[in-house]
């Protein structure tokens, strides 16, 4: 995919996430802060895209340990 298309896609995804932020917290953010949050969302979308370039298979588990709990007795 050409880079400009990638950037447009990232921007569109960031805008979608920004709508969610606005719905939750819009009353707390000034216009300038909304702009900063949008920038941060775009960086996070780009970071997630970088992760998608690492090949993973169904067998690749998240590196987090779950221990089923059993209390004493």
């Amino acid at each position: 995919m050409p880079e400009s298309n990638g950037s447009e896609r990232h921007a569109a995804m960031a805008r979608g996430l920004m709508d969610a932020v606005r719905a939750r917290y819009g009353d707390r953010l000034s216009a300038e802060e909304e702009e900063r949050v949008a920038d941060e969302l775009r960086r996070m979308v780009e970071a997630a895209e970088a992760l998608r370039r690492v090949p993973l298979t169904n067998a690749d588990e998240p590196d987090v340990l779950f221990r089923p709990y059993r209390g004493e007795g």
Partner: peptide
């Protein structure tokens, strides 16, 4: 003050 809001929608 605003940095956390973006993180809530990851």
């Amino acid at each position: 003050r605003w940095g956390a809001y973006a993180r809530t929608v990851i």
